[in-house]
């Protein structure tokens, strides 16, 4: 139960924090159509977070609700991967971040469909349809940027070199994931990695983009240790609930 709770926070926080990042782009997208696309994805992710937190709060059984989990924890209590809290940067940064994440999430949700925890399976089923579309959207853009102009290729390539170091953390497993994998609640995340790599490479090849070689990995977000960007993000995310506790609108 405790393990499931922690795992739900990990994937719920991924959804919420990336949803918050994309929400920052509302009204700032490069073109109107893409602005709507990115904020649609943001809303999908925040909707997923709501479902995940609702179940997590129920498992926790301490009278907290989804909002309390989303808005009233401290920085070190968020367990999202560091990848998703990275700033939006330029359009290529945003879409490469999204692409790395979408491939992982699609593989994860596909496996969670057969979870021994029915609630987890139900959440995965609902989220998977959205995630498939997100992946289609981000894959198309990575191809277009990589195989586009000199400038778009340069920026996409730079985004890959920059964000690559945070991808290993998506497959992080500690006691929580090991126990849940044994119980059939989640897949062995390390098994997802080669599938993820294969999918990523298949798109990058079309996009004529390359992966870095011999680069180290970084990230302890799953243990609550975040990059310097996280505090600022949370300040904006939590402001209203901190200043006007329990406000609703």
């Amino acid at each position: 139960m405790e393990h499931t709770y922690k795992f739900l926070l990990r994937i719920g926080d991924d959804s919420l924090i990336l949803g918050q990042r994309l929400a920052e782009l509302c009204g700032h997208g490069p073109i109107l159509e893409e602005d709507i696309a990115l904020t649609n994805i943001s809303l999908d992710l925040i909707g997923q977070a709501t479902n995940i937190y609702t179940y997590a709060a129920q498992l926790e059984g301490k009278g907290r609700d989804a909002d309390a989990l989303a808005f009233l924890r401290l920085e070190h209590q968020y367990l999202n991967a560091i990848l998703v809290e990275q700033p939006n940067g330029n359009f290529a940064d945003t879409l490469v971040r999204q692409f790395f994440f979408d491939v992982y999430r699609k593989l994860l949700f596909e496996q969670l469909l057969t979870s021994t925890d029915e609630q987890v399976a139900a959440i995965a089923e609902k989220s998977l349809k959205e995630t498939r579309y997100h992946l289609k959207h981000s894959s198309e853009w990575v191809i277009r940027l990589g195989d586009g102009t000199e400038l778009s290729k340069e920026r996409a390539q730079f985004a890959i070199l920059d964000l690559w170091r945070y991808t290993e953390e998506l497959f992080y497993m500690d006691e929580t994931e090991i126990q849940l994998a044994k119980a059939g609640v989640i897949p062995n995340l390390q098994d997802l990695k080669p599938l993820w790599m294969e999918h990523v490479l298949s798109i990058l090849n079309i996009a004529t983009l390359k992966l870095p070689e011999n680069q180290g990995f970084f990230g302890a977000g799953r243990q609550g240790r975040h990059s310097e960007y996280m505090g600022f993000l949370l300040a904006q995310l939590q402001y209203m609930q901190r200043v006007y506790p329990n406000m609703q609108w």
């Binding site: 109107l32 159509e33 709507i36 696309a37 649609n40 579309y133 198309e140």
Partner: peptide, 10 residues
Amino acid sequence: EMALQNARDV
């Protein structure tokens, strides 16, 4: 393809 996706979103 982008036109289809944008149409879906908009």
